[in-house]
Simulated scan of single mutants.
Amino acid sequence: MDTDSRPDAGGGVVAAVDIGGTKIAAALVDEAGTLFARTQRPTPATAGGETVLRTVLDLLDELAASPRWPGVRAVGVGSAGPVDTARGTVSPVNIPGWRDFPLVERISAHLAPARGRVVLAGDGIAIAAAEHRFGAARPYDNALCMVVSTGVGGGLILGGALHTGRTGNAGHIGHITVDLDGEPCPCGSRGCLEQLASGTAIARHALRSGWQPSSQDASAVAVAASARAGDPIALAAYDRAGRALAAGIAATATLVELDAVVIGGGVAQVGELLLGPLRRHLTTYAALPFAADLKIHRAHLGTDAGLVGAAAVAALT
């Protein structure tokens, strides 16, 4: 765990948790979006729900060792979705042990009441809150902020404000259909954007197409390394992902007239290897004039956007 010896200087901090299909991270976050006492563990995604919960609670217990912990005034949780913020439950597609899991109730029961309320948000909503408050979406009133990682999620800024929807799932772009005859998705639909553009999907498609990893690593990161070395199969896998993202983004921009799209998450760290094809294919899919001038940005906050955003949502609620 990253440590910090300074006590809270006033104004309070938020304990933030970012739950994804690959890792669960936690940190204390102040009002300026600065992270303290950051810690993380791999997500036991194939384990039972109680095991996943234990990982979350253990991380919070680690944060409690920080001298800043007494200043915590709320807990913000950003989770892969879908979520139900009204009920405080989560059903992440990539964590099958959690279905209508009462996460807010269980975290609240674990923590002392003095730590304040527990506020749940979808991970895409959290990233949108972070990037609009502190990052690449700050100049825009209408933006889609996305996470491209083990899964694909998103959140919307409309009219200068965070748009969450009735259950907190507005902007969940990873589960819109971009391939009518595509593969079944664990969400119950088929041809979802996540099935074509997530890190898992990129690696799966490359392997099916004959890509040969140079080591035992068959992840999207390894595919990216091969693509940079000029491997045509690896390059095609990222081009396919960029094309799928372009189709989903263009559809969203056509519905709500976006000014910009901000893309974060682990897969987005490859930069132009993904964003280059995305921009190129966007010229085809975003054909109407009001959707054709979209600005595409990488998330300024990198892989910490989920933590900063979870804290921001809690602070605003």
Rank of each mutant, 00 (worst) to 15 (best):
G191L: 13
A287Q: 15
C192S: 06
A314N: 04
E257K: 12
L180F: 05
A161C: 12
L258C: 06
D8G: 08
A201K: 02
E50W: 03
L53R: 04
A292S: 15
R204D: 08
L144M: 10
L316S: 15
A246T: 05
N94Q: 06
G20E: 03
V77F: 02
P213H: 01
D4R: 03
I173K: 08
A126G: 03
E183N: 02
G88S: 05
I233L: 03
A229G: 15
A286T: 12
P139C: 07
F134H: 07
G306P: 04
V29I: 05
A225D: 15
I176V: 07
W211S: 10
D84T: 08
V262K: 04
R115L: 06
H172E: 01
T34I: 13
H132E: 06
G135A: 05
A112S: 14
L301H: 03
V13T: 09
E105Q: 00
A197N: 03
G116C: 04
A86Y: 13
I125M: 09
R133W: 07
L274W: 09
Y285M: 06
R6K: 13
G271M: 11
P42D: 12
R6C: 14
G188K: 13
G151C: 09
A246H: 08
S79G: 08
A237Q: 06
D304K: 00
G49N: 01
V267N: 08
D84A: 06
G199R: 04
D181Q: 08
F290Q: 13
I173F: 11
G302A: 08
D18F: 00
A143C: 04
G182Y: 13
G154Q: 01
G88V: 05
G191H: 10
A161N: 15
R190L: 14
R87H: 11
L301Q: 07
T303K: 12
G276S: 09
I125A: 05
L301T: 09
T177K: 07
T89V: 14
D84S: 00
S226L: 00
